[in-house]
Nucleic acid binder design. Structure first.
Length: 104
DNA sequence: CAATTGACGGGTG
DNA sequence: GCACCCGCCAATT
């Protein structure tokens, strides 16, 4: 059950949740980008912390490191999902994506 | 309340 | 491009 009723969630949690939930297919961004969209450019770690808890209800696989490196917990599954959305991944690293930070 | 930890990013070598 | 260190934020102990 959701310990959070969106009403209890902090503004930062809400903003981060919205930012990630708004990502489209093939749109890959970094934790820092999510933080910026949430209005807290200096809190990329908070973005990662939230994703780690909300990994069931959010498209966490569309968020990677600023360098393109995939998440440290399920890089294999993440690579699988991304590839299915037209994202080019090589050796656990996003090379190019239709949308987002790695779009050409 | 202080110290530790972690799905981060940027600078440096 | 990679390894290491420092700084920032939030959650946990």
């Amino acid at each position: 059950m959701a310990k959070w009723s969106i009403s209890d969630a902090t503004p930062l949690e809400q903003a981060l949740t919205i930012a990630v939930a708004s990502l489209e297919e093939g749109e890959v961004v970094s934790y820092g980008d999510v933080a910026v969209r949430a209005g807290r450019p200096d809190a990329p770690r908070a973005a990662g912390a939230l994703l780690a808890k909300s990994l069931t209800s959010l498209p966490w696989w569309r968020v990677v490191y600023a360098s393109g490196k995939l998440a440290p917990c399920n890089p294999t599954l993440q690579k699988k999902y991304l590839h299915g959305e037209g994202v080019v991944v090589r050796d656990d690293r996003v090379v190019r994506s239709p949308l987002g930070r790695f779009a050409k």
